[in-house]
Nucleic acid binder design. Structure first.
Lengths: 237, 237
DNA sequence: TCGGAAAAGATTGCATACGATTTTTGCTAG
DNA sequence: CTAGCAAAAATCGTATGCAATCTTTTCCGA
């Protein structure tokens, strides 16, 4: 897949930082799997696509590199990250550590508005599952991640929220690379159970359900190294 | 305090990214409190000090801004971060969530080499506590943070390790702003207790001790807003 | 035909230049 | 002497240019 095959909506929020807007667009594209792992993101190309100079494009790529979504090699350029199985395990180990705690924090802060937001989120999730086709599948993965991000925002800790954004984005990459298939519908019902526990203020149950949920997501991955890892890395795929 | 009052050793690791080297130097200076919260870090000044162009200096400042050590305002510049009490609470809430888990992971991976490294680390910590003067106090805070970073490295999760680096650095800022005084010697003995539990492979105890340790550090802070928060912010101090 | 070296091309790293925005300075009127 | 405004200085945001490095192509000899 080539980045030039993609189209990006114009960057509208003019007053804000342009680099940040470009980063957001690219991140969405990566998380949505419109940009496959390993895709080269050259500064010039990104700059041309978004109609900015290489300076700005470079800044956007640097941000993505900090988030672990892009890997940069000196004098070679930036590529959509290609997480190794080990990295994948670490992503999920981090989530197992953090998300149950986030669920507990969120359980203590749920308002009716929050509940409504979750319900809307889960509705959308359900719609995408009902649909078929690769496009719906992408949206489904995205929506599934958004549930976790919504939870993090309710928890009210900006630092953890930012970290979760990174972990969810990287999880999406990992699932793209190592996912088998039929996890998502199962994940949907788990999300609903978690919301139920949150509504009831049952933080312990929400936390436990979250832990199992993460385990289930990871269990759906096939983290065995496929060919020789050296070969795989040499071929950059 | 003015950044120009500081001196920075020359950037030696030539082949590596210069921006990264500058970031490391600046981070050390911030964590060591040689650069006080609120200090302006202008691109030009940083560039001149390290003998690079503004382009490189800007990249270094952008990195620090991602780590939360520097706050940048559009068209105004970069300043050493001035975390609010709320931010401070979030930093420690994050640490309470993560570090006990890191202690458990580390307990299962301790080798004799690790134990030796910890002993050396604690020795150094003890030396700085024995010394007096503001310089020793700085080193003491730094060494105390290094204990937590060493633990994170033993835990073997690169993602969590990077996150801990951020949290420890931000904690140092918070302590600079809101710390009372006599925590560190107490912290030293707690570190030794944690190491003992780690050596014995008693992960539960290490985890519990870590949690209490973080509570103690936070309890030593005075997070009441001093004057009107708006005024304080307006004065940028 | 194949292997390898050299040249051409592409891309990054970095410095510098210029317009835009903010901050400071200095002057004038009250 | 102070308030307010205008000009000057400083600083940032961004584009662009050049050298260094990497990649690809070309060409030549075996």
């Amino acid at each position: 897949m080539n980045i030039a095959d993609q189209t990006f909506p114009a960057v509208d929020s003019a007053n804000e930082d342009r680099a940040q807007a470009i980063r957001d667009q690219l991140r969405d594209a990566i998380v949505d799997r419109r940009l496959a792992p390993g895709t080269k993101l050259s500064e010039g190309e990104v700059g041309t696509l978004f109609d900015v100079s290489r300076t700005v494009a470079r800044a956007a790529l640097q941000m993505l590199s900090f988030e672990g979504l892009v890997r940069t090699e000196r004098n070679r350029g930036a590529f959509v990250a290609n997480p190794s199985p080990e990295e994948a395990r670490q992503v999920f180990a981090s989530r197992r550590l953090i998300e149950p705690g986030i669920a507990i924090a969120a359980a203590g802060r749920m308002t009716p508005d929050h509940v409504a937001a979750f319900k809307a989120q889960l509705d959308e999730e359900g719609r995408f599952i009902a649909e078929r086709g690769p496009n719906a599948r992408r949206s489904e993965i995205k929506a599934s991640g958004d549930f976790h991000l919504l939870l993090a925002s309710v928890a009210g800790n900006a630092i953890l929220q930012r970290f979760m954004e990174e972990l969810v984005a990287r999880s999406s990459l990992v699932i793209a690379l190592y996912g088998r298939s039929g996890v998502s519908s199962c994940g949907h019902s788990e999300h609903m159970n978690i919301l139920e526990a949150l509504e009831n203020g049952n933080s312990e149950r929400a936390s436990a359900l979250m832990l199992h949920h993460i385990d289930h997501i990871e269990a759906d991955l096939d983290l065995r190294v496929r060919s020789g890892p050296a070969l795989r890395q040499a071929l950059e795929f």
